[in-house]
Design a protein around this nucleic acid. Structure first.
Lengths: 222, 222, 222, 222
DNA sequence: AATGAATGAGCATTCATTCAT
DNA sequence: GATGAATGAATGCTCATTCAT
């Protein structure tokens, strides 16, 4: 029926805009991301953005989500053939793998979470996404429990929260200076947590004696 | 020309401004925090801010740090009489305690970390603070190792990173909906991590069998 | 290539667009009337408007006139069989009858007259239309004079101006709150004016005495 | 108490801005009145307008009202010493006097009434002002009735409405081409209405005969 | 020390118009 | 005839900063 321009590339164009928006945010920061800059990034003018997104807010939210949705699909594909502890291991390892795309994703996430402070609506949306993530991890852990592959006494949701928090918290540090993290150190760190607190395995070399130390320094929070 | 007193007033006034700035950021968000709003919060006009801070950026950075410095002092006081594992436990417990002041602090931190994306200078400053925190925790753990109270094979800096990441990551979730977290669940979660991965204790009920499970869901990152 | 039919369709479509434009103006106001909104009102897209009107200005002007031309035709039909004072009475009564269509017409007129301020070209067009109206009423009054049915000393054009002004002025008030005016009060008001100042009849109960009052309030113009 | 700039000229400045706004509206029309143009009219930049008015809407509304408030004060002063019919005559004559300032006022009013179409809030405000005007005129007429100087059977509010409508309606025509109206024609027209429909006097030369005429033309509304 | 007036650039958003299909 | 993508200028508004008092 449509006689004018082809309609098919609507979604394609939205994705193109989303990509440009992400690039600008990561380069200049969220506060310095103007529609004009996004348009310039693509070689277009600002007016065109209005065709594809009703407002700047909608554009930016879509941009962030599109980046993450792609990552989720990739991770699901990577884990779907696995079973038991290997499946959790695969998922967790993928989540902590440091590569440029992942760094971009978590930087974007940090930018958005920061902008959600003082914005109840945005905070709710982010909270809901967090809950979904916990739920999904929780289901994995509960299945392991059912098979006797994870500690019986665990609350799966708390275990999932802890695991996700550890990964998120590591990313908080990673994004500040990604080049410091190349090898498998981080995966080993997370897996040590998983093995001891979820799988219930003994820590690798658990020989400690009972003397008392006297450390002195206090960490700063920031 | 009472210079000394004037200097004293000066710092008092800077602190007052910092407090007002924090209040506005937490209420309206960083992006919506204008100097006019901060001045209004105090019952002053914008011009006065210029007497105490050269720029908005300086004002905001000072505001955030002042909040955290106060918290650090408090934590140091709480732990200084303790020894050995109790000391680490005390520090860690204090860091995960959910109360309105702590929620405000971590929300502020999230806002600033978010605004550091795309701003290399600010990112460096935050990174340096992170490193200090890791160093301090690392020293505590190293002392425990020296006394045989922590796992020998651990890299203290990695262990400190993991511990800090877990706490930071938990806070990332807490600040979204603080009212969900009242009891000792979070402290228990963190202490389980500490006991197994740092102290090297056996997980509470480590009876698992060897069957293989088949979990299916994949968590989303956001 | 059925040219005749196409021409017919053309005018039909212009009328359809004009109707949609009026609806939007009355709902949202002239300033908030965009071509996109008019197109949406009809279920079309903006591009189509360009086929029927060269510019927005032309479209809007046509829209207003079409509404009034329809009203004029209707009034002419209602009065064509009457004679003498009855004819003027019929015309005047029709002009002051409060019904939704008339309210819409006068609201539209007010919107356009308002937009003519500062726009000499539009003002001229509106002025010309006013003059036509006065001329037509003036002819009616002159005929009554010729028949001895109206005051001899009247200047017919001034009398017509006064009558039209009274009706227009009443409408200025009516359109603000049309629901206040249901009955024959307004027609009676206008007819009292017509009977005394044009027909020369005695006011209904003309017994006043000669004392002097002392009223105090002063009306505001707006 | 205030140490900085003097505060006294705040209202003076608002008036200055209001005057500039009126000038621009009358020259370019309401739709083409931008804040930049108003600022340019005064030799300032746009930002300054924000010091004195919260929004464009507030500025424009204030501008219009300030013009009318000044006129009301002037009219009140002119009529305060008079009594009885002379007082009403004085007020009415002042309301219909054609001079550049009055033309500006009524043009501004037309522009605002036009922009009130489709804007319920603005329409309500204008309606309220109209009601005040009617009330004030109504009080004048009621006093005349009480003294036996006006027709007993009149509803003062309807009489006031009619009188105000006649004046407003005349202005609707006057503003289109003010130079056409120099002498006392308009005042005479209004006073004829007042004398016959309110005072109850006989029309000047009431000799009409009974023949029936057959006028033909029908006035157009616009 | 403190005020508040004034600046002027930057922003998101709106919109009439053009034009390839 | 009709579409809708794209333009690009204009608008109201915000705000950090400057500065005379």
């Amino acid at each position: 029926m449509t006689r004018g321009r082809i309609k098919g590339d609507h979604e394609v164009r939205r994705a193109e805009i989303a990509r440009a928006a992400c690039a600008v945010i990561l380069r200049n920061g969220l506060a310095a991301t103007s529609l004009a800059e996004i348009a310039r990034e693509m070689g277009y003018t600002t007016g065109v953005l209005r065709h594809y997104f009703l407002s700047k807010e909608e554009l930016l939210f879509h941009a962030k989500n599109s980046l993450f949705d792609a990552a989720i699909d990739a991770r699901r594909d990577g884990a779907q053939d696995l079973q038991g502890r290997d499946k959790l291991t695969s998922v967790v390892t993928a989540m902590i793998a440091v590569n440029p795309a992942a760094v971009d994703r978590y930087r974007l996430l940090a930018a958005f979470n920061g902008s959600a402070i003082g914005d109840e609506a945005l905070m709710s949306k982010q909270h809901a996404r967090n809950q979904e993530n916990i739920e999904a991890l929780s289901a994995l852990i509960a299945e392991l429990q059912a098979c006797g592959l994870a500690l019986k006494g665990l609350d799966p949701r708390m275990a999932a929260l802890g695991l996700l928090a550890l990964i998120d918290g590591l990313w908080e540090h990673i994004i500040m200076k990604p080049q410091d993290w190349g090898g498998d150190d981080l995966a080993a760190l997370v897996m040590a947590h998983v093995r001891t607190t979820i799988f219930g395995e003994l820590p690798p070399e658990a020989e400690t004696d009972r003397r008392t130390g006297a450390p002195s320094a206090i960490p700063r929070e920031t």
